[in-house]
Structure formats: C-alpha cells, structure tokens
C-alpha cells in the first residue's frame, strides 16, 4: 500500500496562507510605490529599494543568529519583511539620506519584530515604529526640506516647502486644489502617501481579495474628517482637506489594518478604528503636526486591553437586554417573596 498522510481534523483546508495574504498586501502597495517613484524620481526608488532589501536581509541574518538553516529560512519566508520594508519606505520623505531607510529598517525588523518573537508576535507595527524612530533620530531631515514632486499641479503651479497638512494646521489654509490632493500632483510629502488614488486602488484590491474589511479604513477616514469638522466649529470645508492630507490614507488602509497589531474580534476592531479616527483628528488639532503614525502606535499598545474586554458573546448566550430582563425579573421575584414573608 502506498504511504498516506495521517493528520488532525479537519483534513481539508482553505487555500489561503499567510504568504498569500502578505503577497496580496505587497501587490496592493505597488501602485502607490510606483506613483511615488514617478513623482519623486530615482531617489524615491532607491529609498524603497534600500528599505526593502535591508528589511529582508535583517530578518535573514537574525534568523541565522538563531541557528536556523539557510534553506529553512528561505522556505519559511512569508513576505512580512517585504511588507514592512515597503511600508516604511512609503512613509519616509524622498529627500532623506541613504542611511535613514537602512537604519530604520534594521531597527524595525530587528528590534520591533524579531526581538519580540518574529512574525505574529510583535506588539506594535514595525513599519510605523521604524518611521517614528527615523522621525526622532533624524529629526531635521524628516520635518524640513520637503521637495516638490517632478510632476506639477494640474494648474501648473509647483508648491514646495511645508506639506499641505503643516500649512493647514498652521492656519495658513490651502494652496492646492482637492483634485491635486487626491492625485498627489504638485504636492510635497512622503513617497507613498501623496497619491490617494493609488492607495485607494490598493485598498480596493485588498477588500476584493478579502484581506481587509472595507468598513475599517472607511470608519477611520470618515471619522477623522468628521471630528476635524466638529473641532473647526462645523465648517464643512475642512472635511475633504483633512482626510486627503497627510498620511491618513496610507495609515488607514495599510498600517492600522495590520492583522498582528489590531484587535482579534470584529467588535474590537470597530472600537479600535473609532478610537483611531477620533484621536487622529483631536491630536492633529492639538499638536499641529501629522500624528497618524503616533496614534496608530498608541492604539497598537491598547490592543491587548481591547482584546481582553471586547469579545464576542458565545452562540446562544443571553444578550445584554435579555440579561437585564432576567435580572429585573429576579429582583421582582425577590421583592415579591419579601413582601409575602412580611405579610406572614
């Protein structure tokens, strides 16, 4: 008789794998990465390349240090480090020196991901933390000296200097049209965050492939815009600029939806994304800088708390209303008993 497989039930499994999901995320990120290269030139491409290669190499070297066999590492390669490297490069400005993506990527993979146990064990998003590391370590390079894209705005004007969000939060208003903001034309910013159209295409791809639920990024983006409007005394002209500026799209579609660092249950995810939306708008107003990455980092740390308290009710268990009803009925019965006892 031929050799057969003996395994645990269930014996048939779905086709989806971790590697497949991560590959989907890489594919979804490609339009935005390509647009970044188109807008910011070879420098942007080099930044992305350095970041991705550094991420993959760091993971490989770290695994070698753990005495894993090279063949084994290659076999179990799951594209998570590619996603991290790509995301990290997309939220760096194109004008930074070559060592910024390199050091940030090494930090993101070695410290944030591998030290905590590798894929699935990190408590915060490596790419976000890598960006914040770069923001703090290379502050001057990260907050000033923005370069304008090589493609000018639709009306031909070229803006440089501060990004639109800094300008808006500083009370200077907008100098570019909404269409420019959506397409990223003529707008300074990080490599991957300026072209909202490309990010949106990536997001739709992820939704179609059922990697993420469409509700999550939509809640985040819409709520940020709405709370911003509330904070500006219900001036609805702030809605579109708020959601189209800064790294909100990139953060909402690709960073906040990261499986590892978002809550496990559906209800937990709603809590998480609502909190993200409110916090982003409030802190943007309070600090005057782009806070999407900080807010996501902050909420990542709160996720274990959400996981502990927001969990589904087992099938058949009484619901909230039902439980209150039974409690009320019990109380009534008790009171009735007491009365009867008193009468006797």
């Amino acid at each position: 008789m031929e050799k057969v497989i003996v395994s645990d039930s269930p014996h048939i499994r779905g086709k989806r794998t971790t590697r497949g999901i991560m590959l989907d995320v890489v594919i979804a990120l490609l339009p935005a990465a390509v647009m970044g290269c188109v807008y910011f030139g070879v420098k942007a491409f080099l930044t992305i390349l350095i970041s991705v290669v550094a991420s993959v190499a760091t993971e490989f070297v770290y695994s070698l240090c753990l005495k894993k066999k090279p063949l084994e590492i290659v076999k179990s390669f799951d594209f998570t480090s590619v996603v991290t490297g790509l995301l990290l490069a997309m939220c760096l400005p194109s004008h930074v020196a070559w060592y910024v993506p390199l050091i940030s990527a090494v930090f993101a993979i070695a410290v944030v991901k591998m030290l905590f146990g590798g894929t699935g064990k990190n408590i915060v998003n490596p790419a976000i933390t890598g960006r914040i590391f770069a923001f703090i370590a290379f502050q001057s390079a990260m907050v000033s000296g923005w370069v304008a894209p090589t493609i000018s705005a639709l009306d031909g004007s070229v803006t440089s200097g501060a990004t639109q969000l800094t300008s808006m939060l500083g009370g200077n208003g907008y100098s570019v049209s909404l269409a420019d903001m959506f397409l990223g034309t003529g707008m300074a910013g990080c490599i991957g965050e300026t072209c909202k159209l490309a990010l949106l295409i990536g997001g739709i791809y992820l939704v179609v492939r059922k990697v993420i639920k469409w509700q999550y990024p939509v809640i985040y983006i819409v709520l940020t815009g709405f709370v911003a409007v509330c904070l500006e005394k219900f001036d609805f002209s702030y809605f579109m600029p708020s959601i189209l500026s800064g790294g909100l799209f990139l953060g909402a579609i690709f960073m906040a939806t990261d499986y590892v660092t978002s809550p496990n249950s559906t209800a937990g995810n709603y809590v998480y994304f609502v909190a993200l939306g409110v916090l982003t708008a409030v802190l943007r107003k309070a600090t005057g800088i782009e806070v999407v990455s900080f807010v996501i980092l902050l909420m990542n740390l709160i996720v274990p708390l959400i996981n502990a308290y927001v969990r589904p009710r087992p099938f058949g268990a009484p619901g909230f209303v039902e439980r209150i009803r039974t409690k009320m009925a019990e109380k009534k019965a008790k009171a009735a008993n007491k009365e009867e006892g008193g009468k006797q």
Partner: peptide, 24 residues
C-alpha cells in the same frame, strides 16, 4: 488534502469570524 505545516499565528481573526459558536 492539507499538507502544509503550521506557521506562527498572525492574529488575522479569520478563526473568530468563522467560529459558529462565536468563540475566540
């Protein structure tokens, strides 16, 4: 049939969405 080896959990929540008893 399934021939794959288990890899680390990425907390994607697929299992919680599939669980008919609404468990985690």
């Amino acid at each position: 049939v399934s021939l794959k080896n288990p890899t680390p959990c990425i907390s994607c929540g697929s299992c919680a969405r599939a669980c008919p008893m609404h468990l985690m």
